[in-house]
Nucleic acid binder design. Sequence first.
DNA 1: GTCTATATCTGGATAGAC
DNA 2: GTCTATCCAGATATAGAC
Lengths: 188, 188
Amino acid sequence: MAKRGPYGKGIERREQILEAALRTIAERGFLATSVAELAEAVGLSQGGLLHYFGTKEELFVAVLRKRDEADMVALRAPDPAAYIAVIRRNAQVPGLIELFTHMQAAAADPRHPAHAYMKERYRRGTAAFSQSLRDMREAGALPAHIDADAAATTFFALSDGLQSRWLIDPSLDMAAHLELVWRNLIGA
Amino acid sequence: MAKRGPYGKGIERREQILEAALRTIAERGFLATSVAELAEAVGLSQGGLLHYFGTKEELFVAVLRKRDEADMVALRAPDPAAYIAVIRRNAQVPGLIELFTHMQAAAADPRHPAHAYMKERYRRGTAAFSQSLRDMREAGALPAHIDADAAATTFFALSDGLQSRWLIDPSLDMAAHLELVWRNLIGA
DNA sequence: GTCTATATCTGGATAGAC
DNA sequence: GTCTATCCAGATATAGAC
């Protein structure tokens, strides 16, 4: 279980904290979540918690990174349905989308920790999905004239935009709109 | 100049304040803008300013409403190029996009003043653009099988998503991606 | 590594005079 | 309508003991 070697225990504890934070934010939402709140949820004092992450913002970014671990692999699937499924699953945890939206807004400031994270996420996510699109094209599942990079960027930005809106108006069917765009793209 | 009748002067003053706030946020960005900051910019004390809007959040929402006055008409143009031009123009004032993004995040809370504003904006914006699409279809500029409502929602969400991302990574060409989607939609 | 306690700070809201 | 002055709440960050 516990990793061997130096820092093993510290890293493990960090993971535990992130998982607890993930749960707490998912349950109570982003707005209701202060550092003190999180500390209590993980069974630590505020000082103890901040020992691991330095600042609140760093902590929140780490939470987002953790969530991405699962989401990002879906972008390399040989079918956008996998990513659409992720979006659909995310709709079960509005608290995390809320967190994401707030961090995205804060990331406009280049000095904010979320800034580097978001840029990296865009780069990585678009690259992965773009590669998947090229694979599909080779497999004959995508018209030859489609620009994979542009389509990937668009699809990614659209899913972000839909999520922000869905948070405010949950009657929006995100998955349906993504599927529509996809079908339109492949000319079906 | 001054409106006649009761409340005329108050409404006028309100407009002046909003215009000054619009300029200030455009210049200094959202993050650097506190109520005290805005008050100074319009030549009022903090108390004097809050007399007109009650709270900071209400003030910010009023600023967004004011900006929308200009933007929304473009959605009724007989060509999405008009709206794309608005997006392109907005890229000149990142401070206002920053404001929008933060308000969009805050609007997830139903009690926040931005919540009602955003819902209304989505409704109105999508309805307007959807109507434009139907007009285009009648004019033969849009394939018959396109669902106007869904396309409008998609286009709107995409432009929001692109703006959020652009704020973090200004190398993104928002207009180019919107044009690409549009061309793909009409099958060109 | 973790806790307690505290330093500070920022900023928004409010009361009441003019 | 507008100003001055004050209040207050809420958080984070830090210092230093254990």
